[in-house]
Design a protein around this nucleic acid. Sequence first.
DNA 1: GTAAAATGTAAAGTAAGGTTTACATTTGGA
DNA 2: TCCAAATGTAAACCTTACTTTACATTTTAC
Lengths: 78, 78
Amino acid sequence: MLNLIKDCVVKNTLKVERAKKNLTQADLAKLIMVSRQTIHAIESGKYVPSTVLALKIAHIFETTIEEVFELEESDWSK
Amino acid sequence: MLNLIKDCVVKNTLKVERAKKNLTQADLAKLIMVSRQTIHAIESGKYVPSTVLALKIAHIFETTIEEVFELEESDWSK
DNA sequence: GTAAAATGTAAAGTAAGGTTTACATTTGGA
DNA sequence: TCCAAATGTAAACCTTACTTTACATTTTAC
């Protein structure tokens, strides 16, 4: 079975949520205990965070993972 | 900065949700296009799925990731 | 009680998430 | 304008998620 997950595109609203709370990338990184580069990489779509990270991020923004990370429509069937 | 994420414990309700929908591990695996062993590994806590997989799993069960995957209380501060 | 279905387990390999260090560029305020 | 803060970028490295194949054990149905 070939890997279809890696081809899935996930959009996120990190930058906007950060703005709402007036947090810098470094602030957010510190809050969830990861490197600033990790936040940057997620925001710029370089990669999708692990579920543990996603849980923490959604928690900080007082919302759900689904609100922050959205799987592209066409990828639900992959 | 050392990696704290790997030490986080995440419980999940996959087995129960599967029972509700009367799906075998193989059924679920087929629905989200992963191997049966992947489902088994997640269910038995061997590892936490990626966010993409978690999104798909929650979607199948018509719920949210937070309902299916719960970070242990003490790990929110890690 | 036996066959089939479901679940458990394991090993080797690949890809993606995340780290560290380091430096370059952009933005904003005095 | 100039300094500092914020953001962007990159490379080398390690860990974990997920795959494939294969076989063992447990459950379920007849």
